[in-house]
């Protein structure tokens, strides 16, 4: 439906380049947002907390995300990594794997004396987002409520943002040929639901957070725990906060 409307819109633009025509065809987009008009962007600043000690590597989040967002197989808006950091003298060479992004969890892989744990990953919804910085046309952007989103009807597919993301969170959608990534389930959280990955996480390892809400448990989480973001030296303003993140995690 959307694609057909887009096609008609584009055709109309090419045929009659008049502002009136453009305004006419633009109208449905803004009229399309029914109930969501209640949602006030100014009142939210989305983030996520992740407790590494609770993650069991079941892959429910990966499957849940794929179900909710029709993520093409082989590409990942969220995934889980397994770190196995050996003891001295090999502590600098952790063994890391993420078979099929942990879509089917992890097969047992014993490693003696290794520090082993799972690390869930997803877009960090950076406040100083390097991917947004490089987008040549404004097809990916930071929203007033603190998300980094992609306008699928405007993206060129130049892939510069994929190069600029230090975390490997972006991919080119094989059918749409535009860039795609985690939206923090914007279509859910703007309706008062939590993200799909948070909804289906059986251990509560992930928690959606709204930093602008003074009652949100995130404030206690950040205050009471040693917390780290991924690659802090990149100064991306990442907003996915990890508790008990090991030094070896990249």
């Amino acid at each position: 439906m959307t694609t057909r409307r887009e096609a008609i819109k584009t055709a109309a633009r090419l045929l009659v380049l008049t502002p009136a025509a453009v305004a006419y065809f633009e109208r449905p987009t803004s009229a399309d947002a029914p109930a969501e008009s209640k949602y006030d962007m100014a009142k939210h600043w989305w983030a996520m907390s992740i407790d590494i000690e609770k993650c069991i590597g079941c892959g429910n989040c990966v499957r849940g995300c794929a179900n909710e967002n029709a993520v093409p197989r082989g590409y990942f808006r969220t995934w889980v990594e397994r770190y196995q950091a050996p003891a001295y003298p090999d502590e600098d060479h952790p063994e890391v794997d993420s078979p099929d992004g942990a879509f089917n969890g992890f097969p047992e892989k014993k490693k003696d004396n290794a520090k082993s744990f799972f690390v869930p990953k997803l877009c960090n919804q950076c406040a100083h987002s390097p991917c947004v910085q490089v987008c040549p046309v404004g097809a990916t952007f930071e929203t007033p409520d603190g998300l980094v989103l992609v306008d699928q009807t405007y993206c060129l597919g130049c892939r510069y943002c994929v190069q600029a993301c230090p975390y490997g969170c972006r991919y080119i959608h094989p059918e749409k040929q535009t860039v795609d990534k985690c939206t923090f389930c914007y279509h859910r959280i703007s309706k008062g639901l939590v993200t799909a990955c948070v909804e289906v996480c059986p251990t509560g390892a992930r928690t959606l957070a709204d930093l602008k809400d003074p009652k949100d448990p995130i404030h206690a989480f950040l205050r009471d725990n040693p917390v780290q973001v991924l690659k802090p030296h990149m100064a991306t303003g990442a907003k996915v906060y990890y508790k008990s993140l090991d030094e070896s995690v990249r």
Binding site: R13, S30, D32, E36, Y39, E68, P144, H187, A196
Partner: peptide, 30 residues
């Protein structure tokens, strides 16, 4: 003439994109 309506309303992007993304259907009821 060709710049989409609402471009630049909240930042350097098409404001309608926010509505488009919010309007996607959900699978998990919660």
């Amino acid at each position: 003439m060709v710049v989409p309506a609402g471009f630049g309303k909240y930042g350097h992007f098409r404001a309608g994109a926010l509505d488009d993304i919010r309007a996607r259907p959900i699978s998990y009821a919660g």
